[in-house]
Amino acid sequence: MTLDRQARLERLLARHRDAVLSEGPNGTSALHRKDQLLVAARHADRAHAAVERFTERRDDLLEVGVTRLHLRPGAGVEPLELLGQLRTHSDGPMAVSLNHLLRGEPNYDGGPYGLPKPCAPMPKPTAVDTSARRVFAGVIDTGIVSHPWFTGSDWFAQVSPDQLDPIPAEVDYELETQTGHGTFVAGTLLRQAPTAFLMIERALGDDGVGDELELLRALSRLRSRLSSSEETLDVLNLSLGGYTVDDEPSPLLAEALGRFGKQTVIVVAAGNSGSNRPFWPATLKSCVAVGALETDGARRAEFSNHGWWVDACSVGANVCGPFIDDGHEFFGFAEWSGTSFAAPRVAGAIAGFAASKHLSAVEAAESLLDTASRQCHPDFGVVVE
């Protein structure tokens, strides 16, 4: 492990004292909240009864449909062992997961690859086709900041304080901070789909770290907003994710994403570890997993994950977009690299095509991701410009 990777890991664990790095059965590792199991509410009583002797307390989170079981410290049992027992229980399998950490960068040594760098100001995206329909796009990330690209729009007027990106007093991109990540992602999507009405939710802290439960909460809030407005979400962008200890998907996250229905296209960053290891939730069949290309749009970026599960790819290296204005280095725009920024290019392309052609997002995605008529990379999916 390089010093940089070690420093990132140590700083993350120092800030998140309830986090632990565990090794799985295949020799792989993943970060998760220590001594926490997440269980679908419908299985909560059975799960609690099955592991009660190891349990310190339970939190029934009715608004999310999940129960969190806190295991007793020093209970003498591995959470992964309990996970396997509950998923294969003799009375019937249960939907249960460790509370894995998720990041705007996939790992403590991941990305967005490299540091953001200042770039020249860019013109605000404007719609050329005034007849284009309004599309609705969800962005769950670190939140956003007020930016000239956003202010004055009807969607930004609905952004609440809880959906803003908290800017820490000291910003150290060398080790942990991802302040501005959500702003960059939202702006990248808007460049492709200027008519989009963005619905922002925050699941990651200013260090770019969250966990499965926080993502489940953000998804629940977004569904509630959609229900209240009676709108249909065309596209959901998740420039975040992580690995699981056993390389298996979380059934809770799969169910939560499935509740948006087949009319919503869910686009997820494939991760920045240069690996073909399954990265979640991108690897879910219900999601469009997006890898990153170099600036020439022809070659896979070295940092980008790849594999049979990657559906699409777009430029993710040296992307320019809206950023924070810190008054001395960044004046509202930056250049950054990562699958985090390839994903909203694809999400925006789908939303923009749906808007201009008056198609559903699903129809637009089927057209743009048609492997028979589009350029494809082996283990890297369809090229989306």
Score class of each variant (00 low, 15 high):
4 D>A: 14
6 Q>D: 09
12 L>K: 01
17 R>A: 13
17 R>H: 13
18 D>T: 11
19 A>H: 09
20 V>P: 03
20 V>D: 07
22 S>T: 12
23 E>R: 15
25 P>R: 07
25 P>N: 10
33 R>V: 08
34 K>T: 08
35 D>L: 06
38 L>W: 08
45 D>K: 06
52 E>C: 02
52 E>T: 12
54 F>P: 13
57 R>D: 06
59 D>I: 09
61 L>M: 13
64 V>P: 04
75 A>F: 14
80 L>I: 12
83 L>E: 04
87 R>Q: 00
87 R>C: 03
90 S>T: 15
102 L>A: 02
110 G>V: 08
115 L>R: 05
116 P>R: 05
118 P>L: 07
122 M>V: 04
136 F>T: 02
136 F>E: 14
141 D>R: 08
144 I>Y: 07
148 P>F: 10
153 S>Y: 05
153 S>Q: 10
156 F>H: 05
161 P>I: 06
161 P>L: 00
162 D>A: 11
165 D>H: 13
171 V>H: 03
173 Y>S: 11
174 E>I: 12
175 L>Q: 05
176 E>N: 06
178 Q>G: 07
186 A>D: 06
186 A>K: 02
197 F>S: 15
198 L>C: 12
199 M>S: 12
199 M>V: 03
199 M>K: 05
202 R>T: 07
204 L>P: 05
205 G>Q: 00
205 G>P: 00
207 D>K: 12
207 D>R: 14
209 V>W: 12
210 G>T: 10
212 E>M: 10
214 E>F: 10
218 A>W: 01
219 L>W: 06
219 L>G: 01
220 S>N: 01
222 L>W: 00
225 R>N: 04
230 E>F: 01
231 E>M: 04
232 T>K: 08
238 L>F: 03
240 L>H: 02
246 D>C: 06
247 D>Q: 14
248 E>T: 12
248 E>L: 12
255 E>H: 00
259 R>A: 11
260 F>G: 02
265 V>L: 04
279 F>Q: 14
282 A>D: 14
288 V>R: 01
288 V>F: 01
293 L>F: 07
294 E>T: 15
295 T>F: 15
301 A>C: 03
302 E>C: 04
307 G>K: 13
308 W>A: 14
309 W>M: 06
310 V>S: 01
313 C>A: 15
325 D>N: 08
332 G>V: 04
332 G>A: 01
334 A>S: 03
335 E>A: 06
338 G>L: 11
348 G>W: 09
353 F>V: 10
355 A>H: 02
362 V>T: 11
364 A>D: 00
365 A>I: 02
365 A>V: 09
367 S>D: 12
367 S>A: 14
369 L>E: 01
369 L>K: 00
370 D>A: 03
372 A>Q: 13
376 C>V: 15
377 H>T: 13
383 V>W: 02
